[in-house]
Nucleic acid binder design. Structure first.
Lengths: 111, 111
DNA sequence: GTGAGATACATCGGCTGATGAAGTATTTCA
DNA sequence: TGAAATACTTCATCAGCCGATGTATCTCAC
């Protein structure tokens, strides 16, 4: 099942930060990585992705640099910052809490 | 921990539908119910709530009627429709899938 | 050697849902 | 008497997502 944009809204930044925990990467690669992990259920639209990079860099959560010139299209690499690592920790906690709360609110259990 | 609006965005309708599965209710009551179940971690803003009621009714997922006049402020009651019940089932499935996918994308496990 | 498709990045404008603020009205209780 | 709770409504604004469009390079089948 594909997951709608509104459901994922707000998780974009956390997803990118989490992917950068495995090492520096660039847009195209991050997105392929995300699609694979999501087993096709989700992938960023390009506009969403690059908008997010800008937002994250402006907020000091990632930094960027151009990859060394080789064959192929140029790549801009991103690296997570200390602030980004801290933010991701907070995001993960919030996600854990969100699961708890939404399960109580929409799933078929008694609270 | 309070959960941010962007994280909850897109879940508003499902939350309301789920609350109406326990029987007809009105805005103020639904919101108190939600806040209690969320243990204070989330509650609708009034504008969000009433905007959602309108959207849901326009989409045929809920119907509404004025409560019988008694003492106190007037209340508009909402009831979930058959289409609403079907939508909620779909929303619950999507939520289950979202948990799976987001865990794979942002949590600290190997996928 | 050429055209299709993959790789790779970037920007603009429109859409949608959330919400702060403001307003209306009634009841309860100190 | 007035503050606080109950209860509903609308408007303007904001932020994030994304369709569309554009740029440029490389690979591979034909």
């Amino acid at each position: 099942m594909a997951i709608s944009a509104d459901i994922l809204r707000g998780h974009t930044d956390a997803i990118i930060l989490a992917r950068l925990m495995d090492g520096d990467s660039y847009g195209y690669e991050i997105n392929k990585n995300v699609s694979q992990r999501a087993e096709g259920a989700y992938g960023f639209k390009e506009a969403t992705l690059y908008t997010a990079f800008k937002r994250l860099e402006q907020n000091g959560l990632i930094s960027s640099y151009w990859g060394e010139e080789g064959p192929g299209a140029r790549r801009r690499y991103y690296a997570i910052t200390q602030a980004g690592i801290a933010q991701l920790a907070a995001d993960r906690q919030e996600w854990a809490e969100t699961k708890r709360v939404l399960d109580a609110l929409i799933m078929d259990k008694e609270g």
